[in-house]
Design a protein around this nucleic acid. Sequence first.
DNA 1: ATACGTGCAAAAATTTTGCAAAGTA
DNA 2: TACTTTGCAAAATTTTTGCACGTAT
Lengths: 140, 140
Amino acid sequence: MYNLESIEQRLAEQGYRITPSRLAVVEATLEHSGHFSVDDILGRLPGVGRATVFRTMKLLSQMGILCRVLLENGSLRYRVSHRRDHHHHLVCVSCGSVEELDACIAAGAIDNLARSTGYDIEGHWLEFYGRCGPCRSGEA
Amino acid sequence: MYNLESIEQRLAEQGYRITPSRLAVVEATLEHSGHFSVDDILGRLPGVGRATVFRTMKLLSQMGILCRVLLENGSLRYRVSHRRDHHHHLVCVSCGSVEELDACIAAGAIDNLARSTGYDIEGHWLEFYGRCGPCRSGEA
DNA sequence: ATACGTGCAAAAATTTTGCAAAGTA
DNA sequence: TACTTTGCAAAATTTTTGCACGTAT
């Protein structure tokens, strides 16, 4: 799990400066257990400029600290990612929490798919949607 | 496969009027073998207003004639869909053509996933990306 | 001193909305 | 006639860009 310090360290390792704005954005993202939009972060940081939030979130994404989550309606959100390798998400449509799934169920099917379609398959995007245990029991 | 007439008929069946603008939008979408954006359609129809194109494409989506395709970079496109039931896409990153895949490889994994996560899984989004046969052979 | 990073404001890009005018049944 | 649809323009979103000013090395 990330904390402020470990991210500071990674920024430094990769030659990026550690600045108050960046730390503020990082802190704000770490407060979210699920997914969030750029606007969610912006709203929590009145002193930080729009552009800085966009730039910082792009930077964190490139570093693998954030990753994008596709919602069912097609809009894109971010989430703090604890896995740098290939993974998928299971998003709770009720509370917005996100599970990271290590097993890639698409991997096994790709060879067959390549054979039957004649495509060379280079990638895929997969998200699952549902209700988490707490949300299921908390509601009638 | 759709043609202009079959879509006219479905519009009529569902109580929508058949108008020149709508037919123009339908024709423009049918010309695309792969995916396209609202702007692609707008650009081909100088006489038709922005709002009308947006409204018509939303309407066609609700009717199941168009469906949305997620590109690797996260942007959403449309495509003419010939399957009204659950399916996925295999998108050629080179020429933009799209195969519709009838087999849902996610289906088998969902029970296991539900058991291991405690989620009630209600849906998923899956897109594949690759290069189609013609694009593979046409390029060095 | 030199590079990098920031905030602001303006610009772009994308989608939605209000409404009077036009079209359709 | 009564209702739907259109085009336009304005508004609302969302993201990017330019740039002068600040900050770290």
